[in-house]
Write a protein that binds this DNA or RNA. Structure first.
Lengths: 225, 225
DNA sequence: TTTGACTTATGAAGATCCTGATAATAGAAG
DNA sequence: CTTCTATTATCAGGATCTTCATAAGTCAAA
């Protein structure tokens, strides 16, 4: 799970980073408005912690940019400006939670996990989509109760598409989340095509009620049929 | 864990080597400035013991070169010149510790371990990852408190992967740090596969919450599940 | 509609990785 | 120095993953 911390105070930033890394999150940092906007434009995150009081720009602009991107990064607003106005405005703009300063680091952990849980699984450990269910603990997929044997990469691809069902998933996002971030600007995506092909075949053979739809020039979208 | 000893006195060198090898470190030696610079340029080490009084060059130059490399090898300066000046200058240049001569071999052990621990564990004594904990002093691993019996190579592999958790570890890096061999691309890595296999089985049997993920064509990545 | 550039799909081939079995080696004990 | 045992390396086969060549599909401009 990748997390971005946007926060101008260095100590605070490092503190938050250390806390979250203890929970094995992958944490990146941005200290300025500019830095934040740049990172958001380039990478996707599972959760973004956003301090709306930045020295060189308005944090709510950052929030707007995140939400306009449409990828669906969860956002938790972190701020000392805990007036009701700001809170309302933030949540209106699509923030997922609001964490007033000062806070305990344990509280930070709890909020992040809560947001991630809500976003992906609605609290459950099984992911149900159409007639297929995914057991994320055992890396096991079944269709109408019958087990579906998937190789690792096939599973990973399906899992990622499922956690983003109905959303457009770009090929580079898929590459980043399934294959890892060492793939920068791959010059071809044959390895994705290959996995998608095999996955589709297995899903079809087992009469799964999902469709992996290609979106020309961009990526894929998982639809329930 | 790989250690380089840069020291011109032969007896001293051999003594240090023997001491550290008893602790299962992989130890290499350099007796001259030239030799040291060459080794540093070619290989990476987890810890470098550097005598700054070399016959054919200044040890601080060596230190500078190590730090410029950017890989992050830890450095302990070993020297009879234990004036405050040298110490300050060394630590300024990025040395991790300063060990004045003469010293007891037990002291050497302690310092090396302390530096490695600090470097990897931020001062903690036990490395905790998911539900497994690694005691580097006793080469002991436990899962949920129950002991896990690992052979030496298995331990070394796990330890190296753990100290690089979430990072991609290439097979040649693994070979270099665990086996101490310098292996060309062309060679085969059957010996790694073998250890990884056994390690995975033991981890699985003990319900460890870590996964050693293969990254095709490159190496492995340890993830917490 | 046709054309052409570009993107995606597919089957097959090749590379890499995993696994169980066997062989070699090292270390301890006699 | 031998013998025994545990550890480590090697090997062969099968499974998995990527790459390659080629076909098919998509889009937009002419």
């Amino acid at each position: 799970m990748k997390i971005l911390i946007i926060e101008d105070e260095k100590d605070m930033r490092q503190n938050m980073k250390a806390t979250l890394e203890k929970e094995n999150f992958l944490v990146e940092l941005a200290g300025t408005y500019k830095d934040a906007m740049s990172k958001i434009g380039i990478y996707d995150y599972d959760c973004i912690l956003l301090d709306i009081m930045l020295p060189d720009g308005n944090g709510l602009e950052v929030l707007k940019a995140i939400k306009e991107k449409g990828y669906g990064d969860s956002v938790i607003i972190v701020s000392a400006k805990n007036s009701l106005d700001d809170k309302v405005q933030g949540l209106d703009l699509g923030a997922d939670d609001y964490l007033p300063k000062p806070f305990h680091m344990a509280e930070l952990n709890a909020r992040v996990k809560a947001v991630l849980r809500r976003r992906k699984f609605d609290g459950a450990n099984l992911l149900q989509i159409g007639n297929i269910s995914i057991d994320m603990d055992n890396h096991q997929v079944s269709v109408d109760g019958r087990d579906l044997e998937l190789n690792r990469k096939e599973f990973d691809v399906l899992f990622y598409l499922c956690t983003n069902q109905n959303r457009l998933v770009s090929k580079s996002a898929l590459a980043e989340h399934v294959w890892g971030d060492y793939i920068d600007q791959a010059d071809n995506f044959d390895f994705i095509y290959s996995q998608i092909k095999n996955l589709r075949k297995k899903l079809l053979d087992h009469h799964a009620e999902v469709e992996i739809k290609a979106v020309y020039g961009i990526g894929y979208k998982l639809l329930v049929s």
